[in-house]
Design a protein around this nucleic acid. Structure first.
Lengths: 167, 167
DNA sequence: GTGCGGCTGATACACTGTAACAGTGCCGGG
DNA sequence: CCCGGCACTGTTACAGTGTATCAGCCGCAC
């Protein structure tokens, strides 16, 4: 472990539990005077219930069980709200979404590790990378407003297991 | 300028010229014994002719002038070939493609600066970021195979100009 | 020539995302 | 109470992105 240690949430293997994510979201919305509606809660719940990123249509399908039908467009609107407030993150390389494992409600400075074997996502932050990135970008005369960093590979659990999971 | 200085190609304002990109591509394909076919050359030419990222359907439309029609699926196959050999890069956050401004033919270790005002793309590499990223990821027990870094913001030219370009 | 492999053309389809409009429920002002 | 505004949701339609599949073409080895 180094002093500049990066922090990571380890959601790739045993995702952050459902309840705490919803509770945190509800609290955050109360604090900011936002409407945490039924649909938004359901969408967040669906995303939080999966360790791997979910597509908007996957979410719509999952919420559409038992007579009630949820259109993809509604899911998109809920996802817009949730991403805007940092409750879920969009994985650009997959066109999919994951629930945020942090308590911050921030939208930036994050880094995603995507496992090719199990499909899981690990979310982390690294101040060291942030500062290097900020410096390199500034040298190019560029003023950043947002950034994405997504790394694909194999997570520790899958490598130890020596291949794709039985799972 | 620092000793670990990042290198960037500056394609955001006045893109790398058409000819040199095609010439380099042709040479690279000869060296590697790859087929640089008409379609692939045309697609690369279309992408290289633009400083901003192009969608596959934009490319198809541009190539479809004057009686001849190029289907999007053909463009996708050409783009697969070109990205596979590092001649063009995919911008995940835009679902679009840019021609590679470097001579390398590498596919990794790159960083893209996307200007919100002019839509231009600047491509750069930074060993410092690479090493920090490698270290942080390794600490998380993750074995990377590929990565994307995309930064959105305002390029130097647009900031000096003080807003969106008259273009 | 014949067969084989790589490239292209064409159609169809699945997935991702947005635009536009209508309906509903809440809430404050008259 | 009624009315209008506002935010949210439902619905339809459509644009954009990407893949699967089959068929034809062309060069090349046998």
């Amino acid at each position: 472990m180094h002093d500049h240690a990066a922090e990571h949430s380890g959601s790739a293997c045993g995702h952050a539990d459902h309840e705490s994510v919803l509770d945190r979201a509800e609290r955050l919305c109360r604090e900011r005077d936002l409407q945490f509606t039924r649909l938004r809660r359901d969408v967040l719940g669906a995303v939080a219930g999966q360790a791997r990123p979910m597509g908007a249509y996957d979410i719509a399908e999952r919420l559409s069980g038992s007579g009630k039908r949820v259109a993809a467009v509604s899911v998109y609107r809920a996802l817009d709200f949730l991403t805007e407030h940092g409750l879920v993150h969009r994985i650009a390389s997959r066109n999919a979404f994951v629930s945020c494992g942090h308590d911050h409600g921030e939208r930036d400075g994050l880094l995603f590790l995507i496992c090719r074997s199990c499909g899981g996502i690990d979310e982390m932050t690294s101040p060291a990378i942030e500062s290097q990135l900020g410096r390199a970008v500034a040298e190019a005369g560029f003023t950043p407003t947002s950034r994405i960093i997504e790394v694909e590979g194999e997570c520790g659990a899958c490598r130890e297991r020596g291949g794709p999971p039985g799972h």
